[in-house]
Design a protein around this nucleic acid. Sequence first.
DNA 1: CGTCGCCTTGAATTCATTCAAACCCCGTGG
DNA 2: CCACGGGGTTTGAATGAATTCAAGGCGACG
Lengths: 206, 206
Amino acid sequence: MVNHDLVREGDQPVYSFVVLEGLIGSTKYTGEGKRQITSFFVAGDIPDLHGLHLSVMDCNFSTLTPARVGFMRHDALRSICDQHPRIAAAFWRSTLIDAAIYREWVTNVGRREAYTRMAHILCELICRMRSVGRIEDHVADIPITQAALGDALGLSTVHVNRMLQELRREGLIATTGSRVHARDWAGLKRAGDFDTTYLHQKTPAD
Amino acid sequence: MVNHDLVREGDQPVYSFVVLEGLIGSTKYTGEGKRQITSFFVAGDIPDLHGLHLSVMDCNFSTLTPARVGFMRHDALRSICDQHPRIAAAFWRSTLIDAAIYREWVTNVGRREAYTRMAHILCELICRMRSVGRIEDHVADIPITQAALGDALGLSTVHVNRMLQELRREGLIATTGSRVHARDWAGLKRAGDFDTTYLHQKTPAD
DNA sequence: CGTCGCCTTGAATTCATTCAAACCCCGTGG
DNA sequence: CCACGGGGTTTGAATGAATTCAAGGCGACG
């Protein structure tokens, strides 16, 4: 159920999919076999809309937690786009926000140190889950492994573990099982050098 | 002329622009003031098409070398898109390729070590310049500073310098002034763990 | 009750940064 | 014509952040 590839690099899919439940990641592998998660996708997102206009996949989409998705044929999507330019524009916009998130990830991985990076990604996850109603009282249910977090942050599992400990020690988060509780949201944002602008949320859930 | 911001984070521009000459970078700054270049744009590219559908800029666009650009009003572009769905689709496709490049950059910065990372970015630059006819005999004229390369790779200037030296020592590249010569293209691609797929070039210039 | 996956811990190592200084090329002005 | 600066490159040494390796613990599940 977890780490299941829905689409693979090199594929030429005729379907896109929408996330109904769980967490999906777009992933790439280096020649050395190291995995990088390049973005998360939460309920409501359509991760691989780019397949509509790019014939060959340049990344994989895998489940990071148990998940449910719904598939949609490309030809159906295309005819919807042709007939309803507003929807086409909305799809386009959605892919542009994905790109904005990728940009932020490059910055996060390239220029922030591990502790800040960790806090930042938690902020993003919480914001995005909140905007689709998956957060209650700053508590997010994210049954993602520390290894996966490492793949998203470009860090080793061991170091992810230490950074999480430090965030707990600082009183910024608490974890019980798969739940992450943002105990000090303002502090977490500060620690993560986090600014929601890049998410382009209509209601800046903050 | 260099390091000139054409557009700034937070702006709500009414123009997009096309690169006519030179190298443009999309950049972001962390709270600590560190710069990350999240992508390059070469002649023919339209870097900030996303401004068409996202009202506020989440990154800057700066010149990395002396450059010439041409501006285009958003309302003009929008009416072109409305009247010519084929052009709209081409624009959309172009932004999707940008996103694919961002994904690769996340991977490059997150999971490849400095030497490989450096080789990889040179491969990308050379491929993209070649596809728009800016390369003769594997020689690229890229008057970009090592500091800028560092900002693109998430590395310090000093380390960029050392990695370039190593690439020279291995006989993969030669540099004279601002010219980079890929002396051993196959070797450089191997060293950079480089696969052109993500560039989605129609004529895989390789 | 044993096993498997995931989390945690410590110590040694490595990769990359930082700091500081020297160098080089090139354009400018005395 | 040469001294002067300035931006960019190069070098070495010391430091630091994160990885790797290896082992142990913890909890869920068959």
